[in-house]
């Protein structure tokens, strides 16, 4: 049900763009106003979100550790699993962000018939997640060819490698196929596994359908329906040059659907679970070095507490203690 509502929501979004451009001829709204708005919302509210996170104190070191902590020099310690300094954290974060190391440890826990608890490998989520994120990144980088006048060599290289197989015309991008496949898996996983279905919410399904819609509209536009791509670049270049204008040659409506879904994603991004893009860099269980023993960390929330020491206590009651025959430290 949640999945169906999310699916319908994305259909409605696509329909809004279709009606807005094809029927009401609001090219300027959908081609200029909404993209600017979406990018502004994305950048501003991402910053707001990050500052909000940054303003909560980190009183304790709480990194998850899976290895020996640095202690005495002759005890071998685990630099990546239990980092003791900046370098270790950088290495750990690089592996986490680029290769999802912690997800690689994902296990399948099962109770066997003879009531033995067993753990098995479960790498599918990791593999699909990695395929999805990397494809998405490559697709994003590739799209820079629409936003740069002299397309940087790095972007052209990425594009060349992505279309390396030279299948069909226009050349098939491998990442297009990988992204669609991976996201289909990620969706089916939520539907097929009962526990996952129970846990999944609207805001899990909606981004999946939205990104699927973006990828599908892009694939349709590139390989099947086609549009005047030069006009598209004229539009995008006018946008990034802050002199927006809708090109004279009409751009087909599939482009505006693609664009509107992307704008939705951009505007939705800072308020959804997708902010894990920034959050991964700010999770205390990952980015903190385990220096609990080496350094003293003081809780910034601490307020001055009036302390009544034992010496003071004894000063107050020394006579009574002596009368009662209790030992005192100071005569």
């Amino acid at each position: 049900m949640k999945a169906i509502i999310s699916f319908i929501a994305v259909l409605i979004l696509a329909a809004i763009a279709y009606v807005g451009v094809d029927v009401l001829n609001m090219q300027y709204i959908f081609g200029v106003v909404i993209p600017y708005l979406a990018v502004a919302i994305f950048v501003i509210f991402m910053i707001v979100r990050i500052l909000k996170w940054g303003s909560s104190p980190n009183p304790f070191r709480i990194p998850t550790t899976c290895g020996q902590q640095k202690s005495l020099p002759w005890i071998k310690y685990s630099k990546l699993e239990n980092p003791s300094g900046v370098l270790g954290v950088l290495g750990r974060m690089a592996l986490e962000v680029l290769f999802f190391r912690s997800l690689f440890r994902n296990l399948k826990t099962q109770l066997r018939d003879d009531s033995q608890l067993t753990y098995g490998e479960a790498k599918w989520l990791w593999a699909a997640g990695l395929a999805f994120h990397w494809s998405f990144l490559i697709i994003l980088v590739r799209h820079l060819r629409f936003f740069t006048q002299q397309v940087p060599a790095a972007v052209q290289l990425v594009e060349m490698l992505d279309s390396f197989l030279q299948i069909g015309v226009p050349l098939l991008y491998m990442t297009d196929a990988v992204l669609l496949g991976a996201i289909t898996y990620l969706f089916l996983r939520r539907i097929a596994i009962p526990q996952m279905r129970y846990l999944s919410l609207m805001n899990d399904y909606f981004p999946l359908f939205l990104i699927f819609g973006i990828a599908l509209s892009g694939v349709l536009m590139r390989y099947f329906l086609k549009t005047d791509i030069v006009s598209v670049k004229m539009l995008t270049m006018s946008l990034v040059g802050f002199s927006p204008s809708i090109p004279q040659n009409p751009i087909s409506v599939i482009f505006y659907i693609h664009l509107f879904l992307i704008c939705t994603l951009f505007a939705y991004f800072p308020f959804s679970k997708l902010v894990h893009m920034a959050g991964v860099f700010m999770s205390p269980t990952r980015v903190l070095a385990n220096t609990s023993r080496v350094k003293r960390h003081i809780n910034p929330w601490n307020y001055p507490v009036h302390v009544h020491t034992y010496a003071e206590y004894e000063d107050d009651f020394r006579d009574k203690m002596k009368n009662a025959g209790l030992p005192v430290e100071k005569e």
């Binding site: 950048v43 936003f147 006048q149 940087p152």
Partner: peptide
């Protein structure tokens, strides 16, 4: 983040839009 997100806006400054 801002540097990456706004890359297209400053990359093209001063380039001829041919």
């Amino acid at each position: 983040f801002v540097g990456i997100a706004t890359f297209p806006f400053y990359y093209n400054i001063g380039k001829v839009n041919a």
